[in-house]
Write a protein that binds this DNA or RNA. Sequence first.
DNA 1: CATGAATGAGCGTTCATTCAT
DNA 2: TATGAATGAACGCTCATTCAT
Lengths: 210, 210, 210, 210
Amino acid sequence: MQVRKGRETPAEHSFTGAARRSQIIAATIETIAELGYGQTSFARIAERAGLSSTRLISYHFAGKDELMSAAVAEFYDHIGRFMAGRMADVTCARDALRTYITALVAYVADNRARMRAMMEIFLNFRDEDGASRSYDGGDENEVLGHLVRILRDGQRGGEFRDFDTFVMAATVQRALDGLPFLLEARPDLDLAACAEELVTLFDLATRSGP
Amino acid sequence: MQVRKGRETPAEHSFTGAARRSQIIAATIETIAELGYGQTSFARIAERAGLSSTRLISYHFAGKDELMSAAVAEFYDHIGRFMAGRMADVTCARDALRTYITALVAYVADNRARMRAMMEIFLNFRDEDGASRSYDGGDENEVLGHLVRILRDGQRGGEFRDFDTFVMAATVQRALDGLPFLLEARPDLDLAACAEELVTLFDLATRSGP
Amino acid sequence: MQVRKGRETPAEHSFTGAARRSQIIAATIETIAELGYGQTSFARIAERAGLSSTRLISYHFAGKDELMSAAVAEFYDHIGRFMAGRMADVTCARDALRTYITALVAYVADNRARMRAMMEIFLNFRDEDGASRSYDGGDENEVLGHLVRILRDGQRGGEFRDFDTFVMAATVQRALDGLPFLLEARPDLDLAACAEELVTLFDLATRSGP
Amino acid sequence: MQVRKGRETPAEHSFTGAARRSQIIAATIETIAELGYGQTSFARIAERAGLSSTRLISYHFAGKDELMSAAVAEFYDHIGRFMAGRMADVTCARDALRTYITALVAYVADNRARMRAMMEIFLNFRDEDGASRSYDGGDENEVLGHLVRILRDGQRGGEFRDFDTFVMAATVQRALDGLPFLLEARPDLDLAACAEELVTLFDLATRSGP
DNA sequence: CATGAATGAGCGTTCATTCAT
DNA sequence: TATGAATGAACGCTCATTCAT
């Protein structure tokens, strides 16, 4: 997907190299989460990571773009593993939707900084043409695709009423994505209760029967 | 709310001064909408506004912060007038919620660039302490307050079931805020149909009866 | 010819602006002449010009490219005026060639640093595509064009024998361009004598008669 | 001539070491020829040579200076062998001059990249004191020495008229050195015809008789 | 009300080189 | 013989802002 140009980046095969990359990515996420994307510079990242100079970042990543891409990729991997584990044994579409919501709320609760950072990256990181790099794939979108599939299955099986799956999926996802903001406004928010509210909300909004 | 420090800004009472401010704010919104907050600089704004130097911006606004605050204030004023007109003669809470959703969808449809720009500002604009300046007011939050009041009224009047009004309001608001992103992913999205989907969705999610 | 993009450079109409530009160009030429193109940086130029920071250079020139282009343009203007004055009242092609050589040698003698700097710029300054920006225009080349015309006129009038005017012009020009190198190797070189040697050399090489 | 400082360079006696050095030198010449001296870095050379890191260059050469010196030395060796073969059986000074010119033109035609690279190195490569490392030896100059000797011999033997041998040699050499530039301006230039032009030009310019 | 000139700090990136195996 | 890792310095450039009319 991402093509590197000059081949200046060292091989990431080695153990210590991968460790450094992880360390830098972690520092990047922390910095973005705390200061925001706009205030995040190589200097600030290096400082947080305890690196002697920003040169080490340039050494391990071809540029700012690759660093951000790597951070996003790491996030997808992390959340993907988590969600796959939670979604493994769902029995029906209603259960799948309930589980999706509760699992994601749990993930958000445990990864607030990570979520904040990803939000920042998604909203600020643009490619050379100026196009945003997220939410731009339609139904088969990397993020919404899973939800859309759950909703479609539920409609086919008669569990869910007839609605636009894309709009519904986007509404569910944004309610979940928005939790970090809610937590900022109300740090004492009971996330378990919150998850129940959302489960009920979308169960009522989707189910077919009375 | 916003405190100016150095008091260098000229009086905005004069006609030409106000006109200049409006022109600069408009150019700011356009620039942010097109390039994103991160790529928006005084130089880029001045270029778009056809100003000879960035000095004119510094002259009319105490700094970047005041410029952004002014843009947000202008937006609140604009959308406030629009929504007030639409919400003027609602008859009940269900109607109020339906009207809120359809009106906001209509506003988004007609002000896509403005919405995009505000989204960018809300998510990137931080005060000196690093705290985000939006969504940070709790129930009486400037944005969610109106929705929360509608939902509470509906609960009191028995039209709506029992739910956490803050979570519900945030979910509604985020679904609406997210429309610009949906439009980016699917530029041909039918916004009228979309509004109907959301009205139905939240009607089912909120109403008390069977 | 050169198109500027972002319009960040200030108007060069004003007096003080033009003076600053000249000062910076002069410092640029001196720096290149002394240290070579490769060792010439904004920092080094600013230091020599006594500027408080390199920012002033970026302020007056859109970038390194425009600075170099401006230096070259100033050079063409300077040498153009000089040569035009010397070539004003030549009587025939042989005289024109002799005058061209002696005048250029005189110019070189009086503008050694300037010549050295231009040599460096011509040989190092490349546009974005990597193409050299000098000596690349064929007969109508800005530099060789004048010489080619002299030679052609002489051939038409029977003063010069038949030869390839482009090759001859290039040989003359390079002999002249090379003088700064000769002067480096032999700082005590008698330039007047040298001019006579070259006049004789190319007179013998070009003339038609016995 | 070239002194190494730190003595970190490995023995070049070994076979693989010498091969590596040759490979690196070749990549260096290609890179300079294509991108120019200013854009040539260890990274770019390593990339072209297919090396995993720039470290290999630092390992085989004490530094950038030694790498360039080695490239120049290789060039002198290469062109020296070629010219020696061509100049072996010249019969007189006029013949020597003609042969020198035609042979050098032939060499240039067959080694355009190499010539371009050497030009770049000569004009950009400076020692620590900032002094250029080429054309700086007077009569016994490595490059011009041979030509000066031919011209002196011709004068002593009465074949050539009286002229400054240094100026004449420099003029001849620069006409030949300039061919790569001419070829850039006119890629379809007929080099054989060009050689004849130059032979005639300098024969007329040097010969004693009528 | 307007503006040309100037500024120090910071940006991401590239440089040749050294360290430690 | 070779290599991955690391480094401080410098690069051109852009930032929001201030000075002085």
